[in-house]
């Protein structure tokens, strides 16, 4: 059981680091260029980062999963993907 929690924590921490890194790079690109295309894309990556952060409390509090259903996470992912697609298609 302890091993499972450990693996869970490592995976979640990895997920946060990876999404934070991606968001950081894309947001920096937006800050340097300041255009709407990069703004949409960085907002999309920000949504992914929020999703990754929202998974953290689950490890500490079991009731948390009941408060935030799986659909909320899927919805955040969907919003992130839509924003990235809008950014990519924007000229």
């Amino acid at each position: 059981m302890a091993m499972e929690i450990m693996i869970d924590m490592i995976i979640r921490a990895g997920l946060i680091v990876a999404t934070a890194f991606l968001f950081g790079v894309v947001f920096l690109a937006y800050l340097r260029m300041k255009n709407r295309k990069m703004l949409f894309i960085s907002l999309g990556f920000a949504a992914f980062l929020v999703n990754a952060l929202l998974h953290i409390p689950e490890l500490i509090n079991e009731n948390y999963t009941r408060m935030l259903p799986e659909n909320v996470f899927l919805f955040i992912d969907l919003v992130g993907l839509i924003l990235i697609v809008i950014g990519i298609l924007k000229d």
Partner: peptide
């Protein structure tokens, strides 16, 4: 190193176009 990373992000998102230019 950071400048190179940002260059790559800009190359990926700014210079890849999926639609035909007007």
């Amino acid at each position: 190193f950071l400048d190179n990373l940002v260059d790559k992000a800009l190359y990926t998102f700014m210079e890849t176009h999926f639609r035909k230019p007007k």
